[in-house]
Design a protein around this nucleic acid. Structure first.
Lengths: 334, 334
DNA sequence: CGGTATCATGTTACCGGTATCAATTGCGAC
DNA sequence: GTCGCAATTGATACCGGTAACATGATACCG
């Protein structure tokens, strides 16, 4: 069994102390250029691989930033994640990702697990958590950022937008173009809190505009996607024509609805308007293009990075609340 | 500064040694049930959080399995990832994810970084790597699994399918239904090796069936998705009608092509057949449904888990090669 | 030329768990 | 009561880096 190559081995080969090797490999300028080069070369020759675990242990800095996402199969979250990876990578931080499948209980378990890795910050998607999650997080000095939401009672910092408020422009737009009988298509009440907030936003906006009560079309438990939207409309059948507009919880759901409606021979937007949420690629590409709301997923990631930089540099003392906003993008389905 | 709660603190509070606390928290049956319960309770009261870093350091087992994916914004990879998360979670292993953006140079950097975390296994998507990556990996005892491909010269174990061979049934199907003038729509030569393999598979199959040379429609650098497919077809314009069939590198690209073609007023499959790859949701839901190839992304994840179990249990000595296959799914676009 | 600043390197201890082996206790059998 | 064995618990060392401080060598100053 060839035991692994450590700094000590490199040091011995170089004829210097482990400390010097450590410094050399970290580009410490107190080590002479000559020594540094020699250490590098010999480390390579021996196939030395640095042990981040030991470093994390000794320095009590893991180099990890923990992130929870409801689902990794979501273009918007993926974009945020990519922005985080890039931004934090430049700060030599590595993302430790966990996916909650839209369940707060799973989130709790995940946070528990992630915390044992001693992350330097915790980034949660959404603002709803179990009490246990909250108490797990509180009290440690750990910076916490909730994103993709603007919770009323945040755990720490917040970078997001109001899922409820974001729906008002859609309802406005539909009302202005003469639609009155709206139906909301989304997941069943329960796990997806951002979806629920959007639903509530639609209901409130419709009331404010004096529209009739919004009908609810249930697409099943979260996460809901294209096929759930299509199946929900198929279940409703041609009765769907009794609505003026389908307001969907997300673009994939909207696309599912669009396909199902087209399949029935109804015309969009002639017979029925359809709107989505999230500015997913499918909304931009589909025929007709789906009216949606752009939430600037990438910007959320970038803002989180900026915020974390400020936190690590000690420039942030109070809990920040960044509203990245959202904007209506009118397509061809309304 | 309230220094963190350690096992020693818990031990002191309980009035026992840290060793006993360690055992109690790990459900070691040599600790009496009474002691275990007391330790648990006091640990909770003190807000003790276990330190996996210390454990990883001492035991030299990180509890990590490193995974590289080309892109996390891909439903198929996401499905594999989910299967891995679930399966490995049951073995108390945590995934350490990195995304390569379809670039082998980025993969090299990523592998280097991941290896410093001392993972217990390394799972790579695809079978093409830089020489440096290969030499980084070789020689350590680390189990390596390449997935989503069947490389000729594997690094270790393999769970995947042949991207080239998977295209033959598509070409067969198109040829049988009278299509002769095929065009392949995919990323430019370069980064995406699985895409290139698919392209080569189409060219080879077309030759074998005596079809005319396959035309190439370039959708730009990888990763290519819906909008790149659409843009590529828009660039070609109505000349696209000179082809019988568009064979696309993936379902999202196929969907982009479909939309663009429909937008031009051409009929699918009347004027033109379109095929995709990957059995993405969009292929099942779009109107018309896209003919595609099902690659069983989830099964790949499950097989990798099974394989890893075998490896950790010492039941696997030789390099395994698991072909999960693929199957044509005929839709309405051909 | 002595004294001090600067640069390069070394020594020691320690981060928080756990493997290993030793010690103690409890209990039934004889 | 004593012995033997199992059931518990404890003591010690160690995993591989690096912070903090110490040391030795060299340069530079008046």
């Amino acid at each position: 069994m060839s035991t692994r190559v450590t700094m000590r081995d490199v040091a011995e080969a170089v004829g210097m102390s482990p400390m010097t090797v450590s410094r050399a490999l970290r580009e410490d300028r107190t080590v002479s250029a000559k020594t540094r080069a020699r250490v590098r070369q010999i480390a390579d020759e021996l196939g030395y691989v640095y042990d981040s675990t030991a470093q994390a242990f000794r320095t009590q800095k893991s180099g990890f930033v923990a992130v929870t996402l409801p689902s990794i199969n979501n273009a918007n979250f993926a974009e945020t994640f990519r922005a985080l990876t890039n931004g934090l990578g430049e700060m030599s931080l590595q993302l430790l990702l966990g996916s909650t499948n839209y369940r707060v209980a799973r989130e709790e378990e995940l946070v528990r697990q992630l915390l044992t890795r001693n992350p330097e910050a915790l980034i949660l998607t959404g603002g709803h958590h179990t009490d246990a999650t909250r108490s797990l997080i509180q009290g440690r000095g750990l910076p916490v950022i909730e994103m993709w939401d603007l919770p009323a009672d945040p755990l720490g910092h917040v970078v997001g937008f109001s899922n409820g408020d974001a729906m008002a422009p859609i309802v406005d737009h539909l009302a202005r173009t003469g639609r009155r009988k709206l139906a909301f298509v989304g997941a069943s009440e329960g796990a997806d809190m951002r979806g629920a907030a959007r639903r509530a936003g639609v209901v409130a906006a419709a009331r404010a505009r004096g529209l009739p009560e919004v009908a609810m079309i249930d697409a099943g438990p979260a996460p809901v996607s294209m096929r759930h939207g299509a199946a929900a409309i198929e279940a409703v059948g041609r009765d769907v024509a009794r609505y003026d507009a389908l307001v969907c919880v997300s673009d994939p759901v909207a696309f599912g609805c669009l396909s199902a409606v087209q399949r029935m021979g109804l015309r969009v937007p002639g017979d029925l308007a359809i709107t989505g949420f999230g500015h997913f690629e499918v909304a931009k590409v589909s025929h007709p293009r789906i009216t949606t709301v752009n939430v600037q997923a990438e910007d959320i990631g970038r803002q989180v990075v900026t915020l974390l930089q400020g936190i690590f540099d000690g420039e942030v003392d109070t809990a920040m609340r960044v509203d990245v906003g959202s904007e209506l993008v009118v397509g061809e389905t309304s």
